[in-house]
């Protein structure tokens, strides 16, 4: 499909066109700049909810249930579900759809995304993929991260509301004290509420939050049993409360901050690539050799290279 043809179809929210656009964004295809330039003014209109947490916590099932609630409230939904790429083969098995039965049955647009070596829980192109998805004119975008560890906090730079899903049995309360994904949750969910230890985990999380600095928005803790659809309505209500809170506070300010962060990242990437081409691989190799032989120290080497 030619770029202009694709742009026309995107403007009509054609599903195949949107799917193709997402592929081009993922592949960092050459045509993508031109296409995004032409549709940019139409994007940025959905409310973005991020769902993160450790592998097997029930993220996909919860995404599915949130999507269902949204449908019942007459909202249009799009889903991006990120799974890890194998560091060995570069391939991936993307299985999030498996747990998104009701979303699948109701025709919600779900896109499985492989992380393709990017760390942080998302992919290098997630932000633009959300914008691409918005050509469907969805009210809500749900982004599920890779099963996240303690440092995978990138979602918070993308989502309006971040939900962290935890499950009982993964560690003691010191785990909850550590920095990391627990800190980024606007809403904390204790899933698998029918398992022993879920009450205790909820209490520990509450403790942790009460010890921290008091912010305007105190993350609520909700216990769910996703497989039995328990606690989902409460979760939905808290999402709405958080959205109202942001809107009263000035949601545009927070969104502007995120765009600024993105712009800085993209800019530094561009400047980096341009400068690296200018310097050339030989110069880097030469300097590395000199550093290795202790003829020069790394700091002087960098100064010398940049001055060139």
């Amino acid at each position: 499909m030619k770029s202009n043809e694709l742009i026309n179809k995107l403007k009509q929210s054609d599903v195949r066109a949107v799917a193709r656009l997402l592929t081009l964004i993922e592949n960092e295809d050459k045509s993508i700049e031109y296409i995004l330039k032409n549709i940019w003014h139409l994007t940025g209109k959905s409310y973005i909810i991020g769902i993160t947490g450790p592998p097997g916590a029930g993220k996909s099932t919860i995404v599915d249930l949130i999507a269902k609630m949204a449908l019942e409230n007459n909202l249009k939904v799009g889903i991006l579900a990120v799974d890890p790429t194998s560091p060995f083969s570069g391939g991936a098995v993307l299985g999030d759809r498996l747990r998104m039965n009701s979303a699948q049955k109701s025709g919600i647009f779900i896109r499985s995304v492989a992380s393709r070596g990017h760390l942080g829980g998302l992919t290098a192109t997630t932000r633009f993929m959300i914008n691409g998805l918005e050509m469907l004119r969805n009210d809500l975008t749900l982004v599920e991260t890779v099963g996240a560890g303690q440092g995978d906090v990138e979602i918070v730079k993308v989502a309006d509301t971040t939900i962290v899903v935890e499950v009982p049995g993964l560690g003691d309360e010191v785990q909850a004290q550590k920095a990391g994904i627990l800190e980024i949750g606007d809403i904390l969910v204790v899933n698998k509420g029918d398992r022993p230890g879920s009450d205790r985990l909820a209490k520990e999380l509450k403790m942790m939050l009460s010890l921290g600095e008091h912010k305007e928005w105190i993350p609520p803790i909700i216990t769910t049993t996703a497989t039995k659809e328990l606690g989902i309505e409460e979760l939905w209500n808290k999402i709405k409360e958080h959205r109202d809170y942001l809107e009263n506070k000035d949601i545009n300010k927070t969104r502007l901050d995120k765009i600024k962060y993105d712009l800085e990242n993209q800019l530094s990437q561009h400047l980096f690539t341009r400068k690296m081409i200018q310097i050339g691989e030989n110069e880097i190799e030469n300097m590395a050799k000199k550093i290795f032989k202790r003829e020069i120290d790394p700091f002087t080497a960098i100064e010398t290279i940049i001055k060139q």
């Binding site: 599903v15 799917a19 997402l22 790429t85 391939g91 299985g95 498996l98 647009f109 779900i110 492989a114």
Partner: peptide, 29 residues
């Protein structure tokens, strides 16, 4: 096996209807 050869595989699970399959294939491009 396809994963190990570097492909991205979307696994949709059991008891899918032809409608589900085609819709998923289009969304997943």
């Amino acid at each position: 096996a396809l994963r190990d050869s570097g492909m991205e595989v979307i696994y949709t699970g059991l008891r899918q209807s032809p409608e589900d399959i085609v819709e998923a294939a289009i969304q997943e491009d």
